[in-house]
């Protein structure tokens, strides 16, 4: 006999969920998984272990991780300012946070490139200090940090708002210094949201294309990202090779997201 539940519609909801996942996510992905094997196992392996491919993967994932980690304190700070302080222009700032979402990524890429090019507003003073950002891996990380920031801010913001100033006040009255209140009360409460934000920023950064290719310079072995390499292979009608690289990225990304999920579970443990 079926048990009655207080929340009806489980069967229907689950059905729609699977259908959606299947059509939009699993079918295209399975094509990606099936396609490269016409090269044979050895062929796939050779295709994804070319030095140029390995360098591109290392840059894509490494720069994405660096960018996500840079977004962590920056996003926390922005969320903090938006939630805790009232100042003129707060609404404008709040709306501006989402701009990296709305901007066509190519526009963002061009803007960043113009800004950081050796003759740009920021690039020129940096060049004088001996730092080159544009057309180097640093430039890649800068572009990725730019597109990832809203994820961290938007994940942390509601949790911070919900936490309210009372928890910190309670800690202060109990004798905690500012640092102790942060370390023991605020950060642990924000932990799961921070990990989610970083994971989302990271995931977006790994797949990012438009905003990176202009500033990266795309020099093989140095500043060439993996998605660009996939596009390059497609342009040479090497569909299987492109799919092989795509599969490698898929597996690596999935592994990374599993790690983030595990971290989040640990931080959340015991919290209802």
């Amino acid at each position: 006999m079926r048990r009655r539940a207080a929340l009806p519609g489980f069967g229907l909801a689950l059905g729609v969920t699977w259908l959606w996942l299947g059509l939009i996510v699993l079918v295209p992905l399975s094509a990606l998984v099936l396609r490269p094997w016409e090269l044979g196992l050895a062929g796939v392996w050779a295709s994804v272990t070319e030095p140029r491919v390995l360098a591109a993967l290392r840059l894509s994932f490494g720069a994405a991780l660096v960018a996500a980690l840079v977004d962590l304190p920056l996003g926390l700070l922005v969320a903090w300012v938006v939630v805790r302080y009232r100042f003129p222009g707060r609404r404008v700032l709040d709306a501006a946070i989402d701009l990296p979402f709305a901007l066509p990524t190519a526009v963002a890429g061009l803007a960043l490139t113009a800004l950081y090019a050796p003759n740009g507003w920021l690039g020129a003073p940096l060049a004088a200090m001996g730092v080159t950002v544009a057309f180097t891996p640093v430039g890649v990380a800068v572009a990725l940090a730019f597109v990832g920031l809203p994820f961290v801010v938007r994940m942390v913001e509601p949790v911070l708002r919900d936490l309210g100033p009372e928890a910190e006040e309670a800690a202060a009255v109990l004798g905690a210094t500012r640092w102790q209140a942060w370390r023991r009360v605020v950060l642990p409460a924000l932990g799961p949201a921070l990990v989610s934000g970083v994971a989302l920023a990271f995931a977006r950064a790994v797949g990012e294309y438009g905003s990176v290719i202009f500033i990266a310079g795309n020099r093989p072995m140095e500043s060439e990202i993996a998605p660009l390499l996939i596009v390059a292979r497609l342009e040479q009608y090497d569909y299987a090779g492109a799919a092989a690289l795509g599969l490698a990225m898929l597996l690596l990304s999935f592994a990374c997201l599993l790690v983030f999920a595990a971290m989040q579970r640990r931080l959340r443990r015991g919290m209802a």
């Binding site: 309210g164 006040e169 309670a170």
Partner: peptide
């Protein structure tokens, strides 16, 4: 505190 402000985590 009025709403107790317990540390939820």
């Amino acid at each position: 505190f009025q709403n107790y402000a317990l540390f939820r985590h």
